[in-house]
Design a protein around this nucleic acid. Sequence first.
DNA 1: TTGCGTTACTTGTAAATTGCAAGCATAAGC
DNA 2: GCTTATGCTTGCAATTTACAAGTAACGCAA
Lengths: 132, 132
Amino acid sequence: MMEKRSHCPFVFALDLIGDKWSLIILRDIILMNKKFYKDFSNSGEGISTNILADRLAKLECAKIIFKKRDSVDKKRFIYSPTEKGLDLIPMMLEMVLWSARYDKKSAISADILKLIKKDPDNFMENIKNRFR
Amino acid sequence: MMEKRSHCPFVFALDLIGDKWSLIILRDIILMNKKFYKDFSNSGEGISTNILADRLAKLECAKIIFKKRDSVDKKRFIYSPTEKGLDLIPMMLEMVLWSARYDKKSAISADILKLIKKDPDNFMENIKNRFR
DNA sequence: TTGCGTTACTTGTAAATTGCAAGCATAAGC
DNA sequence: GCTTATGCTTGCAATTTACAAGTAACGCAA
């Protein structure tokens, strides 16, 4: 599908993460420090397992995340962000700021919001350092 | 649907603009200066008219855009961004920067890219001034 | 080494969403 | 009042998603 969609930057990004679930998974991996399939499945947002498997495969295929066996418990896999995935952080933070402004019931804490606003680059670097 | 989705900022944003078309429409309105239904329909991305009508209605319902009759040609309607819609610009620009970095065939010009990187706030203010 | 639980999926099927082509409604201009 | 332009709506087939159930691979304990 989508052969006729252009090389517009929006089209590029939306074809990779423009659905209701991909960014939720990336939120879990990048911001919530989750690593395992089961963590994503139990994130509380109600993603079904077939969709979760499909999105993880697509994100891995797009080199936004990667997957490796956990050396501690070889039954499971660790999903981690690539640099390409981590570079989505600025966009994700702007999305958070927008939602915090317009969602009266926003569940984000004022403290974290302040941190993001004060120095978004620093906020991002702290996250990146966790993965290196 | 989606009664069980949380008040996470990502969920809030994705429920409003997390699909393959809403941000394309907003790109046309906010960044490409398009105003009319037919402009969106002919944007070259191949959106079908029922989906276009549906997304315009949802964006209007979410107060991200608004619609009024064109006083010059009363056959048609003008679609414009609200402040809430314009406040999506920072997120949209970060999305553009990410795509420009990772899409080897990106169709965006180096000049515009430079403008965005140099002073994103100024870039946004210039756009906002067009609508006021 | 064999059965058992844990993790990570896959499969089947129904429901919802989308794409495509065609048709309809309203307003202007002649 | 007929024609054209614009902005949709409708019907139906195809694709995608949700939900429930089942399976495969591994580690561990007996």
